[in-house]
Amino acid sequence: MTTDWTVRAISRAMLPVLLALTLVEVGSGLVLGRFEAQLLRYPTLLALVPVTIGTAGNLGSILAARLSTAFHLGTLSFDPADEQLAGNAVATLALALSIFPLVGIGSWGLTALAGSVQLSPGTVLAISLSSGIALAVLAVAVTLTVTYVAYRLGLDPDDVVIPVVTNTCDVLGVVVLFATVQLLL
């Protein structure tokens, strides 16, 4: 792993990553634009989008921070039998199971207060929970993969993993949310 903490070294390592992530975010906006009619028809979905993608990114970021800390402490093993690795992945999924129902009910409640409810609370809960579980699984997979790649390339996971995970979860969040909407509506 590199220990060069100069502005030049950090910029050299991060500039390609940030440029690629900019393109990823543009893709997320394009995907979101394709669902504009549904968002306008169902305001609850409009309230659900930023919270869902933000929560997925946060779950990935929490896991990334835990893995990065374990990496720096020298306790991280990429062995599938590693209990610490599995425990962190399971904790991320458990957190998703507890948070996403609140996200769904909160989004429904917000649009109910605004007087623009078009979907039942059960439908919103099902959409939020289903997409949240799928996103948590994807966030775990992306976080583990990016952490491993950063390790193999000699990059500091603190610098690389969280930006990649949050941006990737933005795109995946939009895609998974609207795939779930297509299945459940």
Results as ranks from 00 to 15, higher is better:
167 N>T: 14
137 V>R: 00
31 V>R: 07
82 D>L: 10
150 A>H: 07
111 T>F: 05
96 A>S: 13
181 V>G: 04
54 G>L: 08
126 A>H: 01
142 V>K: 00
84 Q>R: 15
157 P>L: 08
173 G>Q: 02
41 R>L: 10
70 A>G: 06
152 R>C: 11
108 W>V: 00
173 G>K: 07
3 T>Y: 10
53 I>L: 11
58 N>M: 13
182 Q>Y: 15
30 L>Y: 15
25 E>W: 03
185 L>M: 14
85 L>I: 07
94 A>R: 15
27 G>K: 08
73 L>S: 07
46 L>V: 09
38 Q>S: 09
138 L>I: 14
174 V>H: 08
53 I>S: 00
58 N>V: 10
162 I>M: 07
70 A>D: 12
155 L>P: 01
127 I>V: 12
120 S>I: 00
124 V>R: 05
19 L>M: 12
177 L>G: 02
96 A>T: 08
90 V>S: 09
102 L>C: 12
141 A>P: 01
111 T>L: 07
53 I>N: 00
62 I>R: 12
43 P>V: 05
109 G>H: 08
170 D>T: 11
135 L>H: 00
40 L>P: 01
52 T>F: 13
182 Q>I: 12
175 V>T: 04
95 L>R: 12
145 T>V: 10
69 T>Q: 10
80 P>M: 04
54 G>W: 14
169 C>S: 05
163 P>K: 04
75 T>H: 12
77 S>E: 13
59 L>C: 08
26 V>N: 03
29 G>L: 04
13 A>Y: 01
42 Y>D: 00
149 V>C: 09
164 V>H: 00
10 I>V: 14
75 T>F: 15
116 S>W: 06
115 G>E: 03
128 S>Q: 03
175 V>I: 12
155 L>G: 04
109 G>P: 06
15 L>W: 09
174 V>Y: 13
47 A>V: 10
145 T>F: 10
108 W>F: 14
158 D>C: 06
125 L>F: 15
149 V>M: 10
165 V>T: 13
98 S>R: 08
123 T>D: 01
60 G>Y: 03
136 A>Q: 05
28 S>C: 14
